[in-house]
């Protein structure tokens, strides 16, 4: 990874404020051209090093959201994970090494809709869900310091 790529990744996780020409603004700060910035961001996105360039929304301010855990028998894990992931309201789904081995986040427009989805998942799988809604947030995700070797 070259220096411009590193700087774009590390310094611009939070600084793309709404501006008519945000990439030109970044370029000016870095002393490069707008084409350089856009080109590098395109390359990084194509390589998968950057998931996307844009806003990170905070789920609970945009509807109801809940972290959910399930204990799924190993033999059924793939099928249950597939069923859960098929809901468009599910935006993260991880297998974790624990008795609770399936962890996902559900985001819905209302709390009622969220509860209905959880009930639906329980009926379809015959398995219990553990609801872990956020009660307080102690860290506002402003990006992640990347330490290069």
């Amino acid at each position: 990874m070259n220096t411009l790529e590193k700087r774009l990744l590390n310094d611009f996780q939070r600084d793309l404020s709404p501006s008519p020409t945000p990439f030109a603004d970044m370029a000016e700060e870095l002393g490069v051209t707008e084409e350089d910035v856009i080109g590098v961001l395109r390359t990084l996105t194509e390589r998968g090093v950057v998931s996307r360039v844009g806003p990170v929304f905070r789920p609970q301010r945009c509807g109801a959201s809940c972290l959910v855990a399930m204990t799924v028998p190993e033999t059924r894990l793939e099928a249950v994970a597939e069923l859960v992931s098929a809901f468009p309201e599910v935006n993260h789904n991880y297998e974790r090494e624990h008795r609770f081995n399936l962890w996902f986040v559900i985001t819905a427009d209302t709390e009622d809709h969220l509860q209905a989805l959880l009930q639906h998942i329980e009926w379809q799988t015959g398995l219990a869900t553990l609801s872990l809604p956020m009660q307080a947030e102690y860290h506002i995700d402003l990006g992640f310091p990347l330490q290069w070797d």
Binding site: Q13, R14, V53, G54, P55, V56, R61, G143
Partner: peptide, 16 residues
Amino acid sequence: SGAIRRIGAVPNHYAL
């Protein structure tokens, strides 16, 4: 208001 946490490059930590 906090509905948007930030706007910028979202690194894929796993790929990094």
